[in-house]
């Protein structure tokens, strides 16, 4: 599967798309762990000091919010899935 990163997250990693290898029964948590293993610099961008995904960071799985429609971090991820992570920006 692959991750798509936007704005400050793209800048932090230098990549807009990051492909990661996952097991057959992988979850979003596994895919996120694989992403963080490749790009530990994202840890501070995504998670609060308490380890919670920041409220202002949006995670979408093939355009759907797994926290609304599924099992959140426990949702299944397939090899063809696209996961997106993005923050809002405010400049004008």
């Amino acid at each position: 599967m692959h991750w798509k990163l936007f704005a400050t997250l793209r800048e932090a990693t230098g990549h807009q798309e990051v492909a990661v290898e996952i097991e057959e029964d992988a979850t979003i948590r596994d895919a996120l762990d694989a992403l963080l293993q490749n790009h530990p610099e994202l840890e501070d961008e995504l998670f609060s000091p308490q380890g919670e995904l920041y409220n202002h960071i949006r995670l979408l799985q093939n355009g759907d919010d797994p926290f609304l429609t599924g099992d959140g971090f426990d949702a299944d991820v397939g090899p063809d899935d696209e996961l997106a992570l993005f923050p809002p920006v405010s400049g004008g």
């Binding site: 409220n55 202002h56 923050p87 400049g91």
Partner: peptide, 15 residues
């Protein structure tokens, strides 16, 4: 629906 709230100060910088 996209972003329920704004980032804490300094998390996403302005121009």
């Amino acid at each position: 629906c996209l972003f329920p709230s704004a980032p804490p100060a300094g998390a996403v910088p302005g121009c």
